[in-house]
Design a protein around this nucleic acid. Structure first.
Lengths: 132, 132
DNA sequence: ATGGGCTTTCCCAATATGGCAAGGTCAAGA
DNA sequence: TCTTGACCTTGCCATATTGGGAAAGCCCAT
C-alpha cells in the first residue's frame, strides 16, 4: 500500500505521514525498489492511533509517550491515565483562559453602540492610559 | 526612554517591541546618535494598546486592524464591534472544540482503572481497529 | 510512447515568543 | 582615566504542526 492510500485509509495526510516518520513517531516505512514507501496493516493501525490522539489534542511528544506505553505490554494503566488526565487538566486551563477573554470582550462590546458614530468604548479601553 | 524602560513600562518585552516594529505594527522608533531606539509617551500608549489586545487573544493581524481603526477618527464603532464579536465567536468555537476533547478524555479515563495492571481502555480506544 | 496520476526530496510559509552570541555604548565608581 | 556592569544592537536558531509548491522520477493504461 502506497502512501496516498495509507493517507486515505487513516485520515493522516501523506505530508504528515512523512513528517511523523522524520520525527521518529513512526518507524521508517519499508521501500519498494523504486523507493516508494509502503505500508502494512500494522502501520495503518499505528497511524490511526496517532490520528485519534491528535484529535484529542495530544502533542507529538505526548503521542510518542502514548505509543511507547501502547507497545509496552507490561505498562501500568496508571501511567496512561496520568498522561490523559494531565492533558485534560491542561486543556481545562486553556479553556478558562479563553473564557476570560470572551468575557472581557463581551463586557467591552456591551458598551459599544456599534453604529456609524466613532465613539467606541472598546478602543477606549484598549487605549486607556494606565490600568484598564 | 530606551527600549528596556519602555518594555518595563508597557509589559511588552524588548524583543517583542523590536519584532512589532519589524512587522510594521508600530512605526520604526527614532534613534539616538548611538543607534539606540527611544520611545515617547505616545509610543508607550500604542504598545500598551497592543499588549491589552494580545491579552484578549487578538492576533497580530487583527491588532493591526484595531490600531488602524483607533487611529481613524472617523471610524464607525460598528466596525470595531464587529471585529471584537467576530473574535469572541472564534474563541467560543475553540472553547467548544477543547471541551469536546476534555469530555472524550474524561470518558476514556473513567473506564481506566489506573493501577499497576496493563489493561487500559484508553489505549485500546486509541488503537481500535476501525471506528472509535 | 505518451499522458495523467502517483511518489520522491527539498524549500518556504505561518504564529509569537524566547534564547544566545558577538560587539557597541553608557554611566558610575575606584 | 580606566574598569566594570548593565544596557543596547543585529542576527541566527528553536519551538509545533500543517500546508503549498517545485523539480524530478515512477507506474499504468491507452
Amino acid at each position: 500500500m502506497n502512501i496516498g492510500q495509507a493517507a486515505r485509509a487513516t485520515g493522516v495526510s501523506a505530508k504528515m505521514i512523512r513528517w511523523y516518520e522524520q520525527q521518529g513517531l513512526v518507524p521508517a516505512a519499508t521501500r519498494s525498489e523504486s523507493n516508494y514507501r509502503h505500508y502494512s496493516e500494522g502501520d495503518l493501525h499505528r497511524l490511526r492511533f496517532i490520528r485519534r490522539a491528535r484529535d484529542l489534542g495530544f502533542s507529538i511528544k505526548q503521542i510518542a509517550e502514548l505509543l511507547a506505553l501502547w507497545n509496552d505490554r507490561g505498562r501500568a494503566s496508571a501511567d496512561v491515565k496520568a498522561l490523559a488526565l494531565g492533558h485534560a487538566a491542561a486543556l481545562r486551563q486553556r479553556i478558562l483562559e479563553l473564557e476570560e477573554m470572551v468575557q472581557s470582550l463581551g463586557h467591552l462590546a456591551e458598551h459599544c453602540q456599534g453604529d456609524d458614530r466613532p465613539e467606541c468604548p472598546i478602543l477606549e479601553r484598549l487605549a486607556a492610559p494606565v490600568a484598564a
